[in-house]
């Protein structure tokens, strides 16, 4: 009888240990699952946020032109900035290239700076494109699409009009081929004259 009682006690202990083990495994599994879902959710939120086009204060960036000059957006405060994302493989970019260059030549002494950021492109092709359209305003590669991500562009061309306080006033998705439209956009980012 005593032996039976001992066996019974051992059996109960084995069952309790088994139940404990199951509970521990359940807890571990639940924790891993919840953690994984939380990480996925965090990543999703982060991705959604980065996919929105920039608005309000223009995200700062620095780039090096094809000629080797380093330019930071922050250094251009006080001037209107036309920031154009383009690529040599982009057909619509070619439609707006002559107008952008013409407006740059006209406005460069009026406190407006044009900047071209070359998106997912190859330098030889990009340089050939710049030469073809005789583009003289600062252009450089957007390495690793750093600026493109910050500005949340969805394609090229996209052009941001940034006022002298560094605030994005307008965004044009697609080529700008109408001079009147371009002039109206530039009027929104012109530096104020001292008398104003």
């Amino acid at each position: 009888m005593a032996e039976g009682m001992t066996e019974r006690t051992v059996s109960v202990e084995v069952q309790q240990a088994h139940r404990r083990s199951v509970r521990i495994w359940q807890a571990v599994f639940t924790l891993v699952l919840v953690g994984f879902i939380a990480l996925l959710a965090a990543r999703l939120i982060q991705t959604n946020r980065s996919e929105h086009r920039a608005s309000g204060q223009a995200p700062p960036f620095t780039f090096t032109t094809f000629e080797g000059e380093t330019i930071a957006l922050e250094d251009l405060r006080g001037k209107g900035v036309v920031l154009n994302f383009w690529a040599s493989w982009c057909a619509p970019c070619r439609e707006e290239a002559p107008l952008l260059e013409a407006m740059w030549r006209r406005e460069k002494d009026n406190g407006i700076v044009f900047i071209g950021l070359d998106y997912l492109d190859q330098e030889p092709a990009a340089k050939a494109y710049l030469a073809e359209f005789n583009i003289t305003y600062p252009n450089g590669p957007d390495l690793q699409s750093a600026a493109a991500r910050r500005y949340g562009i969805k394609g090229v061309p996209e052009t941001f009009f940034i006022d002298p306080d560094g605030v994005i006033q307008e965004l044009v998705v697609g080529p700008i081929v109408n001079q009147a439209q371009m002039e109206a956009l530039l009027d929104k980012i012109r530096p104020r004259s001292p008398s104003e």
Binding site: W89, A91, R94, A128, Y129
Partner: peptide, 13 residues
């Protein structure tokens, strides 16, 4: 649109 630009002639490497 990069695909549609395959007929673009310039900017070759």
């Amino acid at each position: 649109a990069a695909s549609s630009s395959s007929e673009v002639s310039g900017a070759q490497t």
